[in-house]
Design a protein around this nucleic acid. Structure first.
Length: 428
RNA sequence: GUGGGCGUAGCUCAGUUGGUUAGAGCGCCAGGUUGUGGUCCUGGAGGUCGCGGGUUCGACCCCCGUCGCUCACCCCA
């Protein structure tokens, strides 16, 4: 402590202790409950995979693959990578186990990307998300978006917007990309410095560029939404109608292009209004048509979303939510100046009866133990000293009583559980 | 990968133009109150001033390097 510790959490990672960890508990519990309500089941996959899972998943030209992956070789000479996002692993698990479709799976998992850390961005962050594999029904798109939205709402987020777009599919996107490329080529000199060099690698990314030169060029260029094939147009219309039907406001954002190569048709992103910087994406996702097949499975479609836990909680704080998501309060705290086995038994009995109970350690003075009891936030203090030992009882004290009048009374040992329960439930 | 800011007690921070034993508040521990927390009072513990090197008679202060944090670019969650 005093000297510099020899080890610290690695750059871009962090420890989460109470009370912050209570927020995590609350968010994950809320999300798990909602996912269950929406008909999803939990899936857990390893946090590292054969690097090929992610190479095929993300695409070789994606930034994540090119320079952000944690790749390593194990002792068996296998090339593995820590997962940079959730979808590819889940799709791989789908292909390996072929569950009945449509398969609706939810997850919470760490994800790793080697980037410079920044507000709301870490090298290890935590993503919660879902995937639905085996149907291209637009109602599923609506459900996935609705679940994300419901989660944000449930924890109190209000100041965010939903952007949606359609990326087209194998039938219509290639032709569009050619049109776009032609347009970019004609205006190459007007693009921003970076894209003037790089636009050929992934012309769609230029649409997502926020720098003015690119914005000017692409604004007058062709939009994918105007060049969708009939099927994609119908699908996108159904998604929008479905969102409308369940009362979720969505803004069509023709320039929304997300980072991974596998997206087709529906893409969406929730952006927060309280994050000024470029890190304003709360979560996002979309449909992927070729990914399952790419990883060796049948030619079926899937859709999913991922959202960052750290970012959600940061946004929640910035929105001014001061109510903790969960309250962890002890029911009773035991103060013991006798030190025989009685208190040890009592504590276990109370815990067995479903009460949250802690005690002081180290045989300290009653005064010191009472301070600990106070700081613990427990509702009741249970004092056990020589007098109580002689009477086979404890003194139960209400630590939240406004004054000392009637704040405490003697309770026989075998009635303590009932008495504490009554006090916690508002009686005395 | 590129650039800006910052590293002094567990936490939040002071620290004069470089000068001798580095301070405060909160927190922690003990006592006042040998059976009572939340108020009050007294005392105490706790710092190789991020780390390494340099300049100087002398460095928390100046210089170089390094590590870490932070903010922005980029990318995304």
């Amino acid at each position: 402590m005093t000297p510099t510790p020899p080890f610290q959490a690695p750059t871009g990672t962090r420890d989460v202790l109470a009370p912050e960890s209570y927020e995590w508990e609350g968010l994950v519990a809320t999300y798990a409950e909602l996912a269950y309500r929406y008909g999803f089941s939990l899936v857990m996959t390893p946090i590292f995979e054969d690097v090929g899972v992610f190479v095929r998943g993300l695409g070789e030209v994606s930034d994540v693959f090119r320079n952000e992956m944690y790749v390593f070789t194990d002792r068996g000479d296998r090339t593995l990578a820590l997962r940079p996002e959730g979808t590819a692993s889940v799709v791989r698990a789908f292909v390996q186990h072929h569950p009945t479709t449509p398969w609706k799976a939810w997850y919470v998992t760490p994800a790793f990307r080697y980037e410079r850390p920044q507000a709301g961005r870490y090298r290890q962050h935590t993503q919660l998300g879902v995937e639905v594999i085996g149907t291209d029904d637009p109602l599923v798109d609506v459900e996935v978006i609705a679940l994300a939205n419901a989660t944000y709402r449930a924890i109190g987020l209000r100041r965010y917007r939903l952007l949606v777009n359609s990326m087209g599919d194998r039938a219509c996107r290639p032709a569009y990309v050619e049109r776009l490329s032609a347009h970019l080529a004609a205006h190459e000199a007007e693009l921003c410095d970076e894209h003037r060099e790089r636009w050929r690698q992934n012309p769609l990314r230029v649409l997502d560029c926020k720098r003015e030169p690119c914005v000017l060029v692409t604004t007058e260029g062709p939009l994918l939404l105007d060049h969708l094939c009939t099927e994609c147009r119908v699908h996108f219309a159904a998604v929008r109608e479905g969102l409308d039907a369940v009362g979720i406001a969505a803004e069509v954002s023709p320039r929304l292009v997300r980072g991974f190569d596998y997206y087709t048709r529906t893409t969406f992103e929730f952006v927060s209004e309280v994050l000024e910087s470029a890190q304003n994406a709360l979560g996002g996702g979309g449909r992927y048509d070729g990914l399952v097949e790419e990883l060796g499975g049948p030619n079926v479609s899937g859709i999913g979303f991922g959202s960052g836990v750290e970012r959600i909680l940061m946004v929640r704080e910035r929105e001014g939510a001061d109510e903790p998501l969960v309250r962890r309060v002890l029911d009773a705290f035991v103060v013991d100046t006798v030190g025989d086995a009685t208190v040890q038994r009592l504590v276990e009995t109370l815990r067995g009866a479903g009460l949250a109970v802690d005690r002081a350690y180290g045989a300290r003075s009653m005064r010191a133990q009472m301070k600990v009891a106070d700081r613990s936030g427990a509702r009741a203090a249970l004092l056990y000293g020589p007098e109580e030992a002689a009477a086979g009882a404890v003194t139960m004290r209400d630590l939240r009583a406004p004054d000392d009048e009637g704040a405490q009374r003697r309770v026989p040992l075998d009635e303590v559980a009932v008495a504490v329960r009554a006090l916690v439930n508002g009686g005395r």
